[in-house]
Design a protein around this nucleic acid. Structure first.
Length: 917
RNA sequence: GCCGGGGUGGCGGAAUUGGUAGACGCGACGGACUUAAAAUCCGUUGGCCGUAUCGGUCGUGCGGGUUCAAGUCCCGCCCUCGGCACCA
């Protein structure tokens, strides 16, 4: 997953996933695969723009600066990307294709009745088809207007397609398009001057960025009809996925937890829609019909009241359906008046709806049931009983029908409400534990009418599953209800009122409909790119692009009318929905991606990134990919074959007595407690994310320069399982540095030459034991040596001899399963290099006994740094050793002209330690 | 509340998926070298007990169970991290 180019650059927590994919891609390359391992930048969007505003530099400039900075950080880390393929979502040659894909979506609709088969013979329900085809079938009379079409057309619904105005036709088509225009209630943040997605709003109703208040407000927005794909997005998480006739089908190899999160997010549920008749107050005549959705139609006999959402049209003043009696009936239970006991019915409902709208997420968390009687009664369709209709905010307008049938005996929420408002509780399912007041599980149906009272809906004795099915069939037979499937997934609001994003390739016709154009729309250069922010939630919305100048904003349309440009821009997600495709063919000026190249590389074999994108990015990208697949632009139904979520690197943060975060570099550790290096004060420690605002992240360069980049890379891989979050430790990294120094001494001789291949020397075997390689026998050693030789040979060819330590380090990761089993599994076993080469249990320790004639190798340290090694007989005299060592090229090199030899120490059998100065 | 992942030494974490628990690293302690320190190298390092270079015993959040054998499987709790959250 590519990063967004933040102004503060990368810290040591960021590269974990990049290092992992780098190692893996190098390894696959060594095995002869043609590996595409690219990198780019998600450079449009709010973070980059806010940074630009704060630093008062134009985003077009600051974004490229930040990209340069991060690119050099990545290069410093020795990450082997193909930089010729670098992309950035904010560059015109990239986002013109984002716009192009948008236009595909705009010009398509989802035909849910279209049944087709993929190359694997799997039946798929629903497909994106061309909107012109839809218009044609209206024109040809092959398709008639749906109920919704008719309500859009109103009085003209009896007119043929040809007799409709263009605006009317477009209004009908808009309501089919995968990218459509509609007025909906959004999270409006005047402080940022933009609409925000739900997940960009915090629990207490503030914006995640900047902490400004967020208001609900109806706005006309571009919306993606992702809900059309709900079923396919769900199914394909586990289905065998065809990729043409010639290649094997694949299934998604994703963490189960992520699949589950996606599945929960889509939130499919099966049940029934049931119609209840609502009575005219004070009479027995039918006033209107109320549809509810339930997953438990088997509990209909226990439905003793109904609940409407506070925004339900039946109780919303000004709505055509509004129909609330003016005042309370005299015999009403006082509890039913809710908290507005003094107000007449209509005002009480309005007051309740107002208060419900003001509630924050924190208020809702209290879950105290509140509500007001609506004045209406309804008739339960299965037993004809008259039941009261309430308004309560535990029912929300945006799910199902915004109304429910309440079954207090078998639903916890309904039960609480019934208790508080004194409503009847009728048990209709048996199976709960003794004494359980509200059983919501499955069991056996009871208490359907019997004997003289018996009803055709009676389901006594049936299991829940049987009862559901029987009731639904009967309801369908009498046209009182029907089987229905609902999703929690909402359509995706796609407009942002900002400057730094992809402009829409759309114009608005003066007659009030949108016109799409093929061809790029460049983001206009504007000195003043700031959004119009305010404290006033009701101020008219003016995206910055309205200041872009007449020339940009208007154009003559094909019919001669003057169109005005769409002034919103796309959200940050847009660019990241398809970037993996552009990596395949980044310089293509004719298409978003060449067809052959696409077929060669897709699907993405391994996609490494953080779990924070578990739902949104991955769901949006899958959605776009499926549309492109339906339209024949890509060859696979899913973009990412294997997904891996690397864990975070966490770090302790320290706060002083004022609660201000103290830079990690100014913290001194003593006995596990943090103290300020300068003031000496003890600091408050909290564990958590590494980040700029906690001042506990270090730039990779700082660590890399001190310990070596190999050490940094290897340490990050060594910290724990790649998928786990583990804390950074400045002490821990030392161990890895020592380990690499031992490795280095083992393979690089006195004069910097590499000693590999052939028979291992006794020294090497010994050294391997010491470096904890602990290779058990000769054969294994040879295999190891061959691997090293191949690695170095390959490495020299590609990047020159300078990178040897890095490649050695990587080899070690793949070899040392006891050190990094997670990596070993990926790199070693999967590579087919053989299994069980290194046993991970109880290797013999190095043999310490040595004969007098044994040759040993002594490492040589000059002023604390390892500078080479020397092979000597165990019984060499100190004098002779001293002479030989001081005459070594590698040692002389590090003794400055005229420097005095301060110390020459030999630790017998271990090391030569020289101090000069 | 619901769903999912976890609880193993002073710390990060291993344990071939039911087969010698504590690999590897950090830290700590002891030793070599040094006037000294740093660095390096060597050794020890779960608790308790003993007749102490060896032996016993207890030990993987808590309580039960299955098994020749349980960190691993089953049942019931507790804690913690992540996701969703009145979704009918």
């Amino acid at each position: 997953m590519f990063p967004y180019p933040s102004g503060s650059g990368l810290h040591i927590g960021h590269p974990k996933g990049y290092i992992a994919s780098d190692i893996y891609s190098r390894f696959k390359r060594m095995q002869g695969y043609n590996v595409l391992h690219p990198m780019g930048f998600d450079s449009f969007g709010l973070p980059a723009e806010q940074y630009a505003i704060e630093h008062n530099i134009h985003p077009a400039i600051i974004t490229e600066e930040n990209i340069n900075n991060i690119r050099s950080q990545l290069q410093f880390l020795g990450l082997g990307y193909d930089w010729d393929r670098e992309i950035a979502t904010s560059r015109e040659d990239y986002y013109r294709w984002t716009q192009w894909i948008f236009t595909r979506l705009y010009n398509s609709y989802f035909d849910e009745d279209h049944i087709w088969h993929d190359a694997n013979g799997r039946e798929i329900k629903g497909k994106a088809l061309s909107i012109t085809g839809l218009a044609k079938s209206f024109a040809d009379g092959k398709r008639t207007y749906s109920d919704e079409d008719q309500s859009i057309l109103g009085e003209d619904a009896n007119q043929g397609w040809a007799d409709l105005s263009e605006a009317q036709r477009q209004a009908v088509l808009n309501h089919y398009r995968l990218a459509y225009h509609d007025e909906i209630v959004v999270n409006w943040c005047p402080g940022l001057g933009t609409v925000l997605a739900n997940e960009e709003v915090t629990n207490d109703g503030k914006s995640e960025r900047g902490n400004f208040p967020v208001y609900k407000r109806p706005l006309k927005q571009w919306i993606m009809r992702i809900t059309s794909y709900a079923d396919r997005l769900l199914e394909d998480l586990d289905a065998p996925l065809a990729q043409g006739d010639e290649r094997e089908p694949f299934t998604l190899d994703w963490p189960a937890a992520i699949k589950l999160m996606q599945s929960n997010w889509i939130g499919r549920s099966e049940g029934a829609e049931v119609q209840f008749q609502v009575l005219k107050p004070g009479t027995q005549t039918i006033h209107s019909e109320l549809t509810v959705y339930t997953t438990r139609p088997d509990t209909l006999f226990g439905a003793t009241f109904m609940v409407l959402a506070p925004q339900h049209p039946l109780v919303t003043q000004g709505d055509p359906l509004y129909n609330v009696p003016e005042d309370w009936a005299s015999d009403i239970d006082q509890r039913w008046r809710g908290d507005e006991t003094e107000l007449p019915l209509q005002s009480a409902l309005a007051a309740y709806a107002d208060r419900a709208a003001q509630k924050t997420a924190a208020d809702r968390e209290e879950r105290e049931k509140t509500g007001v009687f609506s004045g209406f009664y309804a008739i339960n369709p299965v037993n004809g009983e008259t039941i009261p209709v309430f308004v309560a905010d535990y029912v929300s307008m945006d799910y199902g029908a915004g109304a429910i049938m309440a079954v207090p005996a078998h639903d916890e929420r309904d039960f609480e409400f019934a208790e508080k408002f004194g409503l009847q509780i009728t048990e209709v399912v048996k199976g709960g534990k003794e004494g359980e007041t509200c059983f919501s599980g499955e069991g056996t149906s009871i208490n359907s009418p019997q004997g003289d009272q018996t009803s055709e809906f009676s389901i006594n004795g049936l299991t829940t599953a049987e009862a559901k099915s029987v009731i639904i069939n009967k309801l369908e037979g009498k046209e009182l209800g029907k089987r229905a499937v609902k999703y929690k997934l909402r359509d995706w609001i796609f407009s942002r009122q900002r400057y730094w994003g992809e402009p829409f390739p759309l114009y608005s016709h003066p007659d009030g409909y949108a016109v799409a154009i093929d061809g790029p729309v460049a983001l206009p250069e504007m000195d003043d790119f700031r959004p119009e922010t305010s404290d006033d939630p009701d101020r008219p919305v003016q995206p910055p692009l309205h200041r872009a100048g007449e020339e940009w904003r208007t154009v003559e349309l094909p019919d001669g009318a003057i169109g005005t440009r769409e002034l919103n821009v796309m959200p940050q997600w847009a660019g990241s929905c398809w970037y993996y495709l552009r990596f395949i063919d980044p310089q293509n000026g004719q298409a978003f991606c060449g067809e052959q190249a696409e077929q060669y590389f897709m699907p993405v074999d391994l996609y490494v990134g953080g779990a924070e994108h578990a739902v949104l990015h991955l769901l949006y990208a899958r959605f776009w990919h499926k549309v492109l697949y339906d339209l024949g632009h890509v060859s696979t139904p899913e973009p990412f074959k294997k997904l891996f979520n690397q864990g975070m690197i966490t770090a302790d943060a320290y706060q002083d007595e004022r609660g201000v975060y103290v830079d990690i570099r100014a913290v001194e550790l003593r006995d596990g407690e943090g103290y300020h290096k300068e003031t000496g004060n003890r600091l408050q420690r909290t564990a958590g994310k590494m980040g700029k605002r906690y001042k506990n992240g270090l730039p990779p360069e700082e660590v890399g320069e001190e310990f070596g980049v190999d050490t940094l890379r290897l340490y990050e891989m060594y910290m724990g399982p790649l998928e786990a979050s583990t804390p950074w430790s400045m002490e821990g990294i030392r161990g890895m540095q020592r380990f690499l120094q031992r490795v280095w001494r083992n393979f690089v001789d006195n004069d910097g030459a590499i000693r590999i291949g052939g028979e291992p020397t006794e020294f090497q075997i010994k050294r391997m034991h010491q470096t904890n390689l602990r290779v058990t026998d000769h054969i294994e050693h040879l295999r190891f040596n061959t691997a090293i030789a191949a690695l170095i040979e390959w490495n020299n060819e590609l990047v020159g001899e300078d990178c040897i330590p890095q490649i050695v380090a990587e080899t070690f990761i793949s070899l040392l399963n006891p050190l990094a089993p997670h990596i070993a599994e990926e790199l070693w076993f999967r590579a087919g290099w053989g299994e069980g080469v290194l046993s991970h249990k109880a290797w013999p320790k190095a043999d310490k006994a040595m004969a007098a004639e044994d040759v040993i190798t002594l490492p040589i340290q000059v002023n604390g740094k390892m500078r080479g090694q020397i092979d000597v007989a165990v019984d060499i005299s100190e004098e002779e050793l001293r002479e030989r060592v001081l005459n070594m090229e590698n040692v002389k090199k590090f003794i400055p002209e005229g420097a005095q030899l301060r110390r020459f120490i030999v630790v017998p059998g271990r090391i030569v330690n020289i101090v000069v100065g």
